[in-house]
């Protein structure tokens, strides 16, 4: 791990001022992903601005029913917050299925949004990676790609987005608030993470020097239930091979509104409007769920080792929907 300079900010204005537009500077909050990557020598900040003292640790229920989450709320505190447990259980389940207790105790909401891929080619500076070093090639395309994405890939990058929390938020709908040299702006959650396309090094809609200050969840869908199902090799402490966040509101025996988001299979936290359309107004039956699953994965592209993810993701969708619609 190379050395860097360190500065501690007391408030948002100081943090963004300290950062400036400096390409070589990074904000650090929990640090569980950033320090990991600096140790791997795949991120080489020359300066870290510590934002842990910023007053962004609160959750606030807004009058319109939304929930405003401070950037520094830890994954643990968010998962167990009474509003989240009551109104956004899919998010609580997603959070608690991620990482480990220790990591969740430290990792922050904004840090989780900023989490970077676990692709081993990305994580090894000796290997080619277009995301880390544009133009160097993609080691995973011809390499081992069992854990890689089947949705949203390009010929330049098939790295999978690792977050569980973001999948829950993707299903719920949310807004990311950032503050930076250009002032404050809101970004819809679904537009925040970018597809790799020709520029896999661009992972999100964040400008240099901008800092995430809040994530605000949409007001809960009236009468909706949620469930997060994560599938992986072992039972805990592993990134998803496929996961599904399902939020469903019923109208009698029919599905009034459904939200489906997928993890472990997309190059970004994957919202499936196709699956949602296939569910809307339909009876909550296995047949409906399977149609939704087919719709969700219709555009999936497999590589040598990850073809199993396509049926696995379908299974995650079907079971998550069965579970959420069976809840009494």
């Amino acid at each position: 791990m190379r050395n860097f300079d360190y500065q501690r900010a007391g408030d948002v204005a100081e943090a963004t001022a300290l950062h400036g537009n400096d390409h070589s500077a990074d904000f650090i909050a929990g640090g569980t992903n950033l320090i990991d990557m600096v140790k791997l020598d795949i991120m080489r900040p020359q300066r870290l601005v510590d934002v842990n003292r910023l007053p962004l640790t609160d959750l606030e229920s807004l009058d319109d029913g939304r929930l405003k989450i401070g950037a520094l709320v830890t994954n643990t505190d968010l998962a167990y917050h009474e509003r989240v447990l009551a109104d956004y259980p899919v998010l609580s389940e997603a959070l608690l299925s991620g990482a480990s207790t220790q990591l969740r105790n430290v990792a922050t909401t904004a840090g989780n949004v900023m989490q970077r891929t676990r692709c081993p080619y990305f994580r090894n500076p000796a290997r080619p990676c277009n995301k880390r070093e544009p133009g160097s090639g993609c080691g995973a395309l011809e390499g081992i790609n069992r854990n890689h994405a089947v949705l949203g890939t390009s010929e330049h990058c098939i790295a999978v987005h690792p977050s569980d929390m973001c999948v829950g938020m993707q299903a719920l709908g949310a807004t990311i608030t950032v503050e930076g040299p250009g002032g404050t702006r809101d970004i819809p959650f679904e537009e925040y993470h970018l597809l790799p396309g020709d520029t896999p090094e661009r992972e999100h809609d964040l400008n240099d020097g901008e800092l995430i200050t809040h994530v605000t969840l949409d007001a809960p869908i009236d009468g909706a239930r949620g469930h997060y199902l994560k599938l992986r090799d072992r039972m805990s402490y592993e990134f998803a091979l496929a996961s599904c966040a399902a939020v469903v509101a019923m109208d009698g025996d029919a599905i009034r509104e459904a939200r489906i988001a997928l993890g472990g299979v997309g190059t970004k936290p994957w919202r499936s409007h196709e699956a949602e359309a296939a569910l809307s107004g339909q009876p909550a039956t296995e047949e409906t769920f399977e149609k939704a699953a087919e719709a969700a994965m219709a555009g999936a592209v497999a590589h040598r080792d990850n073809a199993f993810k396509i049926p696995l993701a379908k299974q995650a969708i079907v079971r998550a929907l069965a579970t959420v619609t069976a809840q009494g």
Partner: peptide, 16 residues
């Protein structure tokens, strides 16, 4: 334990 909660001491800087 950092302020009473479990944490990985390998992923945090002393200066923090």
């Amino acid at each position: 334990l950092i302020d009473g909660h479990s944490a990985n001491s390998c992923l945090t800087l002393a200066v923090m």
